[in-house]
């Protein structure tokens, strides 16, 4: 049995999580401590959208953007960076679907931080950028970690958008969920079962890691452990 879907899945999920991480925490930072308003509600809706839309819709929208008829797609193809039917495409699809999870968990974690901590940093000469790294992020780190794990799990299970943008190219864009689908369709039920068991094992490991971290997080809230 070809094992490439496992590695492709892990690589894609890791890359997608990394790609969603910075935009996610920056979006969260932007909205976490701003007062409620129309702009905030609109931005929040937009950031959450990929979670609400069916993955096939995301996939189709991404095809419109990155396809040969899309402006961005044409430019990228000219630069020798095609997205459609490539591993890059799989990463982009998973990152877009994953982004809302990263953003939401990070925002929740940021909102738990006492705003006076940030004010204290401000009066001691910190810029917004530096207090973000020195105060806000370390204080919300357990929550952020939970967000990273959730995002990774979601990226690992991504199917619809990935299939539409990156297709099913064995050894290149075929991830585990896609391998399962095509195994069943091709009548190879035993192969599908093996992949299913592997997926369950990976999901279990993820849940265990998450629980471990949320345990640490409670510890953190009650009494912070220095190091």
């Amino acid at each position: 049995m070809e094992l490439s879907p496992l590695f492709i899945s892990l690589q894609t999920a890791a890359a997608a999580t990394a790609a969603a991480f910075f935009p996610g925490i920056l979006a969260a930072r932007w909205l976490a401590h701003t007062p409620p308003g129309k702009g905030k509600a609109l931005a929040d809706g937009l950031f959450i959208m990929p979670l609400l839309l069916p993955p096939t819709v995301i996939g189709f929208l991404l095809l419109l953007i990155f396809g040969n008829r899309g402006l961005l797609g044409r430019i990228l193809t000219d630069w020798g960076l095609p997205v459609v039917f490539t591993w890059t495409g799989a990463v982009i699809a998973a990152a877009v679907v994953t982004f809302p999870l990263m953003y939401r968990t990070a925002r929740g974690a940021f909102e738990q931080v006492d705003p006076e901590m940030l004010d204290a940093a401000r009066t001691m000469g910190d810029t917004e950028w530096s207090l973000f790294w020195r105060v806000l992020l370390p204080l919300s780190w357990p929550g952020i970690t939970a967000g990273i794990i959730l995002s990774f799990a979601r990226a690992l299970g991504e199917f619809g958008a990935t299939l539409m943008l990156a297709g099913n190219i064995p050894g290149k864009t075929q991830t585990m969920p896609i391998a399962i689908y095509f195994a069943v369709e091709g009548g190879k039920r035993d192969v599908a079962l093996v992949w299913t068991l592997i997926m369950i094992a990976v999901a279990t490991a993820t849940v265990l890691t998450l629980n471990y971290w949320s345990g640490r997080r409670q510890n953190f809230a009650g009494q912070y452990k220095g190091k």
């Binding site: 006492d114 940093a121 009066t123 220095g226």
Partner: peptide, 30 residues
Amino acid sequence: LPSRKRKVGYLFQNYALFPHLSVQQNISFG
């Protein structure tokens, strides 16, 4: 002027010490 340029020392009601930093790191923060 932003806070960081005002040269004010602020003691907050609940102190707002940084829980992830030691006493030394807290005092040296600024």
